[in-house]
């Protein structure tokens, strides 16, 4: 009996070790697959055109052989074309715009989201279910179809003017239409709902108004969720592409994603400079990654919660 037990334990341990080895191998394989595109982006960005076109491809490159020129060229001022007088990839201009647009959109979204989530979570009113369902349904519509009407709306609001659009017109046009998010509202409502009703009634007894209750109690309690919303939302502007392209009458008003496409394909030869293209991709990716590593915990916690609570 004892023998069998020992034998079993041994094989159990061996099995467990083998299992762990397999699991780690699997995870390392996935790690490599996840990292390869980033690695390739970085590697291509420091290759010369000759190295890029080499067959078979160079898989490694000593730092001594890195071609920093691709990055230098991005910052060189071009003499003509739509970016005349600006760098080939006006990274800092775009970055400034992106951050500004991102901050304004996020502030707006956070406010509208908190107010609406509070109404759905705490206040009873006629038609609340209907409105809620309608709002959720809008998440299924391809946003493409809004563009032309929104373009005309923005024009009527005076934010689009081919000749006299100011910087702030462009900023308004890029922010106001995006100051709502059904998804975050839904997410925050779930958090609000978990706050015990007792708190609410206690506050009512104390003569606290709904509004005071929201700001003094609900918001502080739901702060982790709100921080998540703020972080996730502020990353959205990094991916905006079609709308800023359409609404900004000057290249200086555009956002980082707009800088990625087109600029590195010579329109007369149709050839893409992959080195410069990847260098710009690195420039756009790095700030996001930095932001991610700084707020890693909050972001990951927030995203996982948004997924579960849905």
């Amino acid at each position: 009996m004892a023998e069998v037990y020992v034998k079993n334990e041994l094989s159990y341990k061996a099995k467990k070790t083998i299992f762990h080895i397999l699991v780690y191998a699997f995870l390392i394989l996935i790690t490599i697959s996840v990292l390869i595109p980033f690695y390739w982006m970085l590697l291509t960005s420091v290759k010369t055109q000759v190295m890029i076109e080499q067959v078979p491809p160079l898989l490694f490159l000593k730092p001594a052989d890195w071609e920093i020129n691709n990055y230098k060229l991005l910052f060189e001022v071009v003499q003509s074309g739509p970016r005349r007088g600006q760098p080939l990839f006006p990274f800092f201009t775009y970055m400034k715009n992106t951050i500004l647009v991102s901050v304004i959109t996020t502030v707006g979204t956070t406010i509208t989201t908190i107010l609406a989530a509070y109404a759905f979570a705490r206040l009873r009113f006629k038609g609340s279910n209907l409105v809620f369902v309608i709002l959720i349904a809008t998440m299924m519509i391809p946003g493409e179809i809004f563009i032309l009407t929104n373009f005309l709306t923005v024009y009527r609001l005076g934010w689009y003017d081919v000749f006299n659009q100011t910087y702030w017109d462009a900023v308004l046009a890029m922010t106001i239409p995006f100051m709502t998010s059904v998804f975050y509202m839904f997410y925050l409502r779930q958090t609000f709902k978990q706050i015990p009703n007792e708190l609410y009634f206690a506050a009512k007894v104390d003569g606290t108004t709904d509004f005071q209750y929201l700001w003094k109690i609900m918001v502080p309690v739901a702060m982790p969720t709100i921080v998540t919303i703020i972080i996730l939302n502020s990353m959205g502007a990094w991916n905006a592409y079609i709308w800023p392209n359409m609404i900004a009458t000057r290249d200086e008003y555009r956002l980082v994603s707009n800088g990625l496409r087109g600029a590195f394909t010579d329109s007369s030869t149709g050839r893409t400079d992959f080195g410069q293209q990847m260098a710009s991709a690195v420039l756009v990716t790095v700030p996001l990654l930095i932001l991610f590593f700084v707020f890693r915990k909050q972001i990951m916690r927030g995203v996982s919660r948004s997924g579960i609570k849905g």
Binding site: L289, M300, V303
Partner: peptide, 22 residues
């Protein structure tokens, strides 16, 4: 591992897509 696996979520889709095209 969790951090690494999360990286694709926080990158610009167009930038990574271009890397895939290469």
């Amino acid at each position: 591992f969790q951090t690494i696996f999360f990286l694709p979520y926080v990158t610009n889709g167009i930038a990574v897509g271009m890397a895939f095209a290469v």
